[in-house]
Amino acid sequence: MGEVARADRAAVFGYDDVYDLFPALTRLRDRMGFALSGGEQQMVAIGRALIASPRLLMLDEPSLGLAPSVTRVVYAALREIKSTTAMLLVEQSTTDALSLADRGCVLAAGRPVLEGTAAELSDRSLIVASYLGQRDALSDS
């Protein structure tokens, strides 16, 4: 599916690259998708997207429902992917997201309430204040 979506764009990631990013998938090559764990399915979904050579990789909650050990594998792969592919990441785990991001934006009720560099947003008190609607704390920053 990724190759069809790639159309005439040059391949950035091949199958071997995906298996290098996610070694656990190597032994599962012949397994049907429904027989994979949630983490394995997430790895396959990211790999399939990479085969398409996207100009922008959009990820919605890549760590949702994953065991911490699998989340670490996914984020390690995303760090490598980041060097060649732009990403837009939606994630509730601010620690994971900010470890990967250059910039971030905190949304509350669908509206941006806080934005800045990952370093600026690493002040968790500001993020908590944004969720609680404490405008005074936000305007001080």
Rank of each mutant, 00 (worst) to 15 (best):
L57R: 10
F34T: 05
L56A: 12
Q42I: 03
L59E: 04
P68L: 08
T94F: 05
D102Q: 09
L114P: 08
L98E: 01
A11R: 11
L88W: 07
D96T: 02
A76K: 13
L78M: 14
E120T: 06
M32R: 14
A119K: 08
A137K: 11
G65H: 12
V106P: 02
K82V: 05
Q134S: 10
G39D: 00
M58V: 15
D96E: 13
R124T: 14
F13W: 15
G65C: 14
D8K: 11
M43N: 08
R9H: 07
E120I: 00
L64D: 11
V73M: 14
D17W: 06
A101Q: 03
D20Y: 00
D30I: 00
S139N: 10
D20L: 01
R31K: 08
P54T: 11
L121F: 04
K82M: 03
M58T: 15
V90C: 13
G110H: 04
A118S: 13
D16A: 13
A77F: 13
R103V: 04
S37Q: 04
F22E: 05
D8H: 11
T94K: 00
E3R: 10
Y15I: 09
S125L: 02
R79Y: 09
L78K: 13
L36Q: 00
A101M: 08
L57N: 10
A86E: 02
S53K: 08
I46P: 11
S53H: 05
D136N: 08
L28C: 01
M1Q: 06
T26M: 03
T26K: 14
T94R: 02
F13E: 00
G38D: 01
L126M: 13
P23S: 05
Y75S: 08
V128E: 15
D123N: 15
A118I: 01
D102K: 03
A35L: 05
R103G: 00
M87S: 07
S53D: 03
R27W: 00
L59F: 11
I51E: 07
R9P: 01
L114K: 06
L64A: 15
L132K: 06
G14S: 07
L89M: 09
V113F: 05
V106T: 01
G116I: 05
A76R: 15
R48G: 06
M43F: 09
R55E: 10
D60W: 14
